[in-house]
Amino acid sequence: MNKEYAVGLDIGGTHITAAIIDITAMKVIDSSLHKESFDSNMPVEEVMTIWEKAIRISIKNSKVVNTTGLAVCMPGPFDYTNGVCWIKDQSKYEHFYGLNVRDLFQDKLNLSNDFPILFENDAVCFGKGEVFKDTDNLSKKIMAITLGTGLGACFIDKGTSISTGDLVPKDGEIYDLPYKEGIAEDYVSVRGLIAGYFALSGKKLNNGLELYNLAKAEDKLAIEVFEKMGEDLAEIVIPWLEKFSADSFIIGGKIANASEFFLPFFNKKIKDAGSNVTVSISTDNEIAALLGATSMLYKA
């Protein structure tokens, strides 16, 4: 079988990771992995120059001559079909609002109009990537979430993302589900953790890493905040694990690194609810996102 290769991109608010993926075997070429940090609120041309640099370095390091597509894992709100960015008032990509990112890539990389440039939601990419990392998951129903600045989710049935119908929430999203005095993301996210710690201690933290370090140093209030988040997460997802009849629940994102503090409390809640779903923590979010993005170009 002839091998085909594609460029996979994992783009966040402060970084871009590029890699070349063998889309027949769905494997990342390790030597091609390249990451660049940047401020996404810079002018569009400056951001695109950094993206181009990451792509060209990745291709050069891979020693691959021809690529057959570009697959992009991108945060929302975003029109993934047409490639238009609708991110607004999120302290990132403030100059990209309303722009066609597909056109920007074509112009910057001198690509033809028929060169495939595909976009997908970052949480969906993560979930799909986890499926391709473990081919046993191709026969299962998976619910995957990303815990970080936001609360991302996806529902995957035998490798296909499901975002409509009665078995999943609207658009396959859980971040905006009504919960307590607000929405789910108010409680299960970095800002939720920081708010929780402030409510208990009166101390304002700058980021999630500070809270994690406090918990590692056995700060009882920091540990309590993570434990409470685990319980909140369980309450939010239990109804959807049941409706979707999920076989597996996979947790990714930066906050997943603190699973030692919240996972036991999450597991207890779902066990008490009678759920038999298999729960796991992703071992490599970034590889999963890259594989998930390029799965749109997968050559079976």
Rank of each mutant, 00 (worst) to 15 (best):
I59D: 00
I59E: 08
K60E: 15
K60N: 11
N61E: 14
N61S: 14
T67M: 11
T67R: 02
T68P: 00
T68Y: 14
T68M: 07
G69C: 11
G69M: 04
L70T: 08
L70H: 04
L70S: 06
V72K: 11
V72Y: 07
M74L: 05
M74Q: 13
P75K: 10
G76H: 07
G76K: 11
P77N: 09
F78N: 09
F78V: 10
D79N: 15
V84W: 02
V84R: 02
C85H: 04
C85N: 02
C85R: 07
W86E: 13
W86Y: 14
K88T: 07
K88H: 12
D89I: 02
D89S: 10
D89P: 04
Q90D: 05
S91D: 14
S91L: 12
S91N: 15
K92Q: 14
Y93C: 00
E94W: 08
E94D: 13
E94P: 03
H95L: 08
F96S: 04
Y97N: 09
N100T: 03
V101C: 01
V101W: 00
L104E: 04
L104W: 02
L104Q: 03
F105N: 01
K108N: 06
L109V: 08
L109S: 04
L111W: 07
N113W: 01
D114Y: 04
F115W: 08
F115Q: 02
P116Y: 07
L118D: 12
E120Q: 14
V124C: 09
V124H: 14
V124N: 15
V124P: 00
F126K: 11
G127P: 00
K128E: 13
G129R: 04
E130W: 02
V131H: 05
K133T: 12
K133P: 00
D134W: 05
T135P: 00
T135D: 05
D136V: 08
